[in-house]
C-alpha cells in the first residue's frame, strides 16, 4: 500500500486532446477507490511545460503517473515520451501510453523509448472502465512508486 494515499491524493497527468476521452477518464476515476487528482493538458508542448514547470505551469505538481496519448497536436506523444525518459528528474515517473493506435510501429517505438506500458483504448465502455480500473489497481495500489 502506498502510504501517501492517506496524506494527499495521487497526482495523475493526463495528456489527451480528445475532450470525450478526458471526460470519460475523469468519470471512471471518479468512481474509483483511490483519492486522486487528475491534471489535464491537451497537447505535447503543454505536457512538457507542465512537467518542466515552465510558465504558466510554475506551480504544477510533480505527477506520480502519466497517461499519455500518442496522437497529439504540436509535439506528439512519442516526442513527449522521449523528453520524459531522458530527463533526470522525470524518467522515474511511470508513463502509460494510452492511445487508439494499434500500429505495431507505434508500440515498438513507445517501448524503445522506455514507455512503462502500452494500452490500446478499448472501444467498449466496459473494457475502457476495466482498463482504467486496472491501471488504478496496478500502478496506484500494487506497485511501489518512488517518493518525490
Amino acid at each position: 500500500m502506498n502510504s501517501r494515499n492517506v496524506a494527499k491524493p495521487i497526482e495523475i497527468l493526463l495528456v489527451e486532446d480528445n475532450p470525450g476521452d478526458i471526460r470519460l477518464t475523469q468519470e471512471v476515476l471518479k468512481e474509483g477507490k483511490i483519492r486522486n487528482h487528475l491534471n489535464v493538458v491537451e497537447d505535447g508542448e503543454k505536457a512538457i511545460a507542465f512537467l518542466q514547470r515552465t510558465p504558466p505551469y510554475e506551480q504544477a505538481p510533480h505527477p506520480d503517473l502519466i497517461l499519455l496519448d500518442l496522437n497529439l497536436p504540436r509535439r506528439n506523444g512519442l516526442e513527449v515520451l522521449k523528453i520524459i525518459k531522458t530527463d533526470e528528474f522525470l524518467k522515474a515517473i511511470p508513463v502509460i501510453v494510452f492511445t487508439t493506435s494499434q500500429s505495431e510501429e507505434d508500440i515498438i517505438s513507445a517501448y524503445n523509448l522506455y514507455a512503462n506500458c502500452y494500452i490500446t483504448k478499448p472501444i467498449d465502455l466496459g473494457q475502457f472502465i476495466r482498463s482504467i480500473k486496472s491501471i488504478e489497481d496496478f500502478w496506484l495500489t500494487i506497485v511501489k512508486l518512488p517518493s518525490e
Binding site: N18, G20, S101, Q102, K121, I123, D124, L125
Partner: peptide
C-alpha cells in the same frame, strides 16, 4: 481508417454505453 475513424466511433460507442449504464 485505423486511427481517425476509430476515434470518433469510440466516442459514439463509449458515450452510448455510458448512457446505457
Amino acid at each position: 481508417a485505423s486511427h481517425d475513424l476509430q476515434e470518433p466511433l469510440r466516442m459514439v460507442t463509449s458515450y452510448l454505453q455510458l448512457l446505457e449504464r
